Amino acid sequence: MKLAFGCDPNATELKQALIKEAERLGHEVVDFPSGDPIYANTAIAVAKSVAAGEEDRGILLCGTGIGVLSIAANKVPGAYCACVTDIYQAQRAVLSNNANLISMGAQVVGVESAKMFMDEYLSHTFDPKSRSAPKVDRINEYERGTLGTC
């Protein structure tokens, strides 16, 4: 799988640890620069790249994982970023929500936990015939402007 990684300056060390883990697992990595203090810039760049299909999935990191990275990434059409703080969320980000990006906080989760969450997230594939598919379809319809009445 081809993965995009991006972070703000607060999460550079965590990003490097996760990149090493992803490469160890055999994934191809695209490392977006992490020096920009305006972290929304990095989040948007990664989200646009993933949404365009240049990478299969993305991993975004900042201090909390929820702030601007998760919020900014989700402003990009075709980007679906879930903030992950445990194994169950990492699993359900894909299985229930077809998230193509996840975010984590370097000040919230430790390195070993973050590796486990990323590994879990990457080990699943969304089933378009699952019970969750109509829910995900509804979100996609809204985004495309083709949503009928609810």
Rank of each mutant, 00 (worst) to 15 (best):
A72L: 14
D56R: 11
C62N: 01
Q107L: 07
K115V: 14
I19W: 00
S96Y: 09
S123D: 08
G148P: 06
P77T: 01
A133K: 02
H124M: 10
F32L: 12
K20H: 14
Q16I: 00
Y142C: 05
L95G: 00
N140C: 03
C150T: 00
G35Y: 12
R144P: 00
E55Y: 12
I66Q: 03
I71Y: 13
P33R: 06
S49Y: 15
E120A: 01
A22M: 01
A93I: 08
S123K: 13
S113N: 07
S103Q: 04
Y39A: 10
I44H: 03
E13R: 13
Y142V: 12
F117A: 10
F32S: 06
S132G: 08
N100S: 14
K15I: 13
F126I: 07
L147M: 13
S132Q: 04
H27K: 14
G58C: 12
V84N: 03
G67F: 12
A93M: 07
F117S: 12
R138E: 02
E54Q: 14
R131I: 11
V109E: 04
G63W: 02
I87A: 13
V84D: 04
P134C: 00
S130W: 04
E141K: 11
K75G: 05
E143N: 04
A133M: 08
D137H: 03
G63N: 06
A4C: 05
Y142A: 10
V111N: 12
E143A: 11
L18H: 00
A99C: 14
G105K: 00
A114Q: 04
L61K: 02
P77S: 04
S113T: 07
N100G: 12
F117W: 06
S103P: 06
N98I: 03
L18M: 04
G63D: 10
L61P: 00
S34W: 07
V108E: 06
I87C: 07
A40C: 05
Y80D: 07
L25Q: 15
A73V: 11
T64N: 08
A17E: 13
C62H: 03
V30H: 10
T149A: 12
V30L: 14
G145N: 04
L101V: 03
Y121C: 04
I44W: 05
T42N: 06
E23K: 13
N10C: 12
L122Q: 00
S123R: 14
D137K: 03
G65K: 08
P134M: 01
L122F: 06
M1Y: 02
G78T: 06
A72N: 06
S123Q: 08
G58T: 11
I71A: 14
T64S: 15
L122P: 09
F5D: 08
T85L: 10
I19V: 14
R92A: 15
E120L: 04
V111I: 15
A90R: 06
G26Y: 01
K75N: 09
Y88I: 12
T125C: 07
V30D: 10
A106I: 06
V29A: 15
G105T: 02
L147S: 10
N97A: 09
V108F: 05
L147D: 08
D36F: 05
S103R: 07
T64V: 03
K129C: 08
P77G: 08
R138H: 00
